[in-house]
Design a protein around this nucleic acid. Structure first.
Length: 470
DNA sequence: ATCGGCTCGCGCAA
DNA sequence: TGCGCGAAGCCGAT
């Protein structure tokens, strides 16, 4: 096997041989980008070695779990750009409609080898198992959406950030290296593999997708080039002082990379290396890497190692026990789901956060915590609160349904945290209050920032206004 | 304004 | 076995 990619990022998922075939198939799923993609570059290197072209397949699944038009629109914008970038490199890109494992197994019948990227959620792991089982040729998984590969970082479910942090930081320098890239020697043009004509405008509107949540194109345009423009803006305007200002939601939303990371449109390795390169103060670089590497990869560890990552039963025992003891406590208010969704509670700070979420597909990280804590406080019982928070999270956020979603909602209920002083409803699970927001940040400034944002229809950085499409 | 107490479990020192 | 300490908590005492 080719050694251009660090072997720690590779897993051979079956014991099938490499066969003779017309191409090397790269099944793109998690890492939806044409650069800084270890899986893609591994496929290119293997194809060159085997004297074959590379064909990329993206299986566009109109029934993807919990996906609606907001998510699909953003993903589609990214795929249009990625397909164009791959064609320019003489790498094939085919998009087909349907369930991923079936489509991959079918196209794999003409391939010598199947290369896939790595995803950590239940259905992503299941899909890869099925492809490995039924494709009949070797399937190699290449991990490109973690800075430190999850199995290198830790083989156990970590209890908290403090137990994973030293393991990650020990390995960080070793993995902060660019992705080796080589030119494909055998172009894919002549293969003529049929696929959807998906780049034409309006294509997405004919798919019968769940249209109940509107796209947020005034705030976020999908695609690698959009992600990079945004990130350069962040590096220039907001990285200096990030360590002290990141919990001030009145200022900005942070780097806003989470939607792009969720769809694999940007590489976390690229972000980490850029921050290291550009930060003037080590404290700012460390604070950003704490989010991008420590907290994000704690989420990967959680969904990979905890089979109940999306269920109340996945919370730590001490948290479930204390919440259970406080189940009978009177709540200050109980809102139904419609009232929450309509941002019609009596808390203006929470309502602003909810409007940011429904209106823009994003929320400042600090407000995500407050938002969740209040849902716990305002629901009839903790299980219902958990289900509501996760459902709203996954429905409205562009980065919903991400490992970060499950760890983030879980944190509200005590996951990766520790007990604190006992309080009504929360028990010893950490609480948050409106008075705390008033004490620690300019929360009225946040409310008016969101009002302006929703009224003005967008705060896409001016230099990032260029088209991601076409 | 700042500080300690609240409470659990992990990891390390002993 | 003991001890320090941890995603951003809150509250009351000084």
């Amino acid at each position: 096997m080719s050694s251009v990619i660090d072997p720690a990022r590779l897993q051979t998922l079956n014991d099938r041989p490499i066969l003779s075939g017309r191409f090397v198939l790269y099944w793109m799923q998690q890492s939806q980008r044409a650069e800084w993609n270890h899986a893609l570059e591994f496929a290119v290197a293997e194809a060159n070695r085997l004297h074959l072209p590379v064909v990329t397949l993206f299986a566009f699944d109109p029934n993807y779990p919990e996906a609606n038009l907001r998510h699909y629109q953003f993903m589609w914008e990214g795929l249009v750009e990625t397909a164009d970038r791959l064609h320019r490199r003489r790498i094939g890109f085919v998009l087909r409609l349907g369930p991923p494992p079936e489509l991959v197994v079918r196209l794999a019948q003409d391939a010598a080898l199947v290369v896939c990227d790595r995803g950590y959620l239940r259905h992503q792991r299941r899909w890869r198992r099925e492809v490995a089982l039924h494709s009949g040729r070797r399937v190699v998984q290449v991990e490109s959406d973690a800075v430190v590969p999850v199995d290198e970082a830790s083989l156990r479910q970590e209890y908290a950030a403090r137990t994973l942090r030293p393991k990650l930081l020990r390995l960080l320098d070793r993995y902060l290296t660019p992705v080796p890239s080589s030119a494909p020697r055998f172009p894919a043009h002549s293969l003529e593999i049929p696929g959807e004509d998906f780049t034409r405008p309006g294509w997405i509107d004919r798919l019968g997708l769940d249209r109940s949540v509107a796209p947020v194109t005034a705030y976020f345009r999908g695609g690698t080039s959009q992600a990079k423009l945004r990130f350069q803006h962040f590096l220039e305007q907001q990285l200096a002082g990030y360590a002290s200002l990141r919990s001030q939601p009145q200022l900005t939303g942070g780097s806003t990379m989470s939607p792009y990371l969720h769809f694999g449109q940007i590489s976390p390795l690229y972000l980490a290396m850029e921050v290291r390169r550009r930060a003037a103060a080590p404290a700012d670089s460390e604070a950003y890497l704490e989010q991008l590497v420590v907290r994000r990869e704690l989420s990967l560890n959680f969904v990979e190692r905890c089979s109940d990552y999306d269920r109340y039963s996945g919370l730590p025992a001490w948290a479930r026990a204390t919440l259970e003891r406080h189940r009978p406590d009177p709540r200050p208010a109980i809102y139904d789901l419609d009232t929450l969704e309509a941002a019609a509670t009596s808390d203006p700070y929470w309502n602003a956060a909810m409007r940011e979420m429904t209106g823009t597909g994003f929320m400042h990280n600090h407000m995500r915590m407050y938002w969740g804590k209040k849902i716990l406080e305002w629901s009839p019982d903790p299980q219902t609160a958990f289900e509501r928070a996760l459902a709203l999270n996954n429905r409205y956020f562009l980065d919903g349904r991400d490992p970060n979603s499950y760890a983030g909602v879980g944190w509200v209920f005590g996951l990766h945290d520790r007990p604190w002083g006992e309080r009504p409803v929360f028990g010893t699970v950490r609480s948050m209050t409106a008075a705390g927001l008033e004490r620690k940040c300019d929360i009225l400034g946040y409310v008016s920032r969101i009002q302006r944002l929703i009224a003005g229809g967008g705060e896409v950085p001016p230099d990032a206004g260029g088209p991601a499409i076409g």
